[in-house]
């Protein structure tokens, strides 16, 4: 798993992908920060992450679309899958590499905390729960993005599918409350209020595990239908 993770992480930093993801996220985050400072004059570090979740919905595919789609298109999938490494370790390696990039991005958002700290007294604990919730949400998003990348060799298709499903999960509860169980972004709502709800953590973690497993199954299944 570490071999794949190391290589994937390196690839994120050797190609513009990693920088584009981090840059795009921080740029949009800064715009929201700026807007809330100048429009409402009230800035709350935690509430910025509601915007963060919206940004994440659109930028996650930058990180995930190439994961398996590119390997498949270039044929390097053959190198991976004919090596003695198991499919599980390959999938986990790729997942954790993306998770590390996400963690780095999140670490960068601490600079907004530092700015606010300079002017006021934002709660470190609430900031902590927010960052935890946001990280869990991003893991769930990455796992779905990875799954989308594993079912196609076209990166555009993978990213459109990822964004489409995220948007559907976001707006479906407006039609019927039943859909709110599938809505990850709604599950995130309580974290910036300093609340850690077990059921929400379980939802994020199980969603993440589900799509990691589905990716493994897809790759395994393709061996027999390929």
């Amino acid at each position: 798993m570490f071999a794949v993770m190391k290589k994937e992480f390196k690839s994120y930093l050797l190609t513009p992908i990693g920088y584009i993801f981090i840059g795009l996220f921080l740029l949009m985050f800064s715009i929201f920060f700026y807007l809330s400072v100048f429009s409402s004059r009230v800035v709350n570090f935690e509430y910025l992450f509601y915007n963060g979740a919206t940004i994440l919905t659109f930028v996650t595919p930058v990180l995930t679309m190439r994961m398996f789609a590119e390997e498949r298109r270039n044929g390097t999938e053959q190198l991976l899958l004919t090596s003695p490494r198991s499919i599980t370790s390959v999938v986990l390696g790729k997942f954790f590499a993306a998770a590390i990039i996400m963690l780095i991005t999140e670490a960068f958002t601490l600079m907004y905390y530092a700015i606010l700290r300079y002017f006021g007294k934002p709660s470190i604990l609430v900031a902590g729960t927010t960052l935890l919730g946001f990280f869990l949400l991003s893991l769930a998003y990455i796992s779905f993005g990875m799954f989308a990348s594993s079912i196609t060799e076209n990166q555009i298709v993978a990213s459109v599918l990822t964004i489409g499903v995220f948007i559907a999960m976001w707006f479906l509860p407006d039609f019927n409350q039943i859909f709110s169980i599938f809505s990850l972004i709604y599950k995130f709502d309580n974290f910036p209020n300093g609340l850690i709800n077990i059921s929400e953590i379980v939802t994020f973690v199980s969603f993440t595990i589900l799509f990691i497993l589905l990716t493994i199954i897809i790759l395994q299944r393709r061996k027999s239908i390929k």
């Binding site: 290589k7 050797l14 270039n74 003695p84 490494r85």
Partner: peptide, 20 residues
Amino acid sequence: PLYADLTVKEFVSYMAELKL
């Protein structure tokens, strides 16, 4: 098929790592 963003040495090392 090769990984375009790796050097020759990095590629061969990665293959060695994959091969345990």
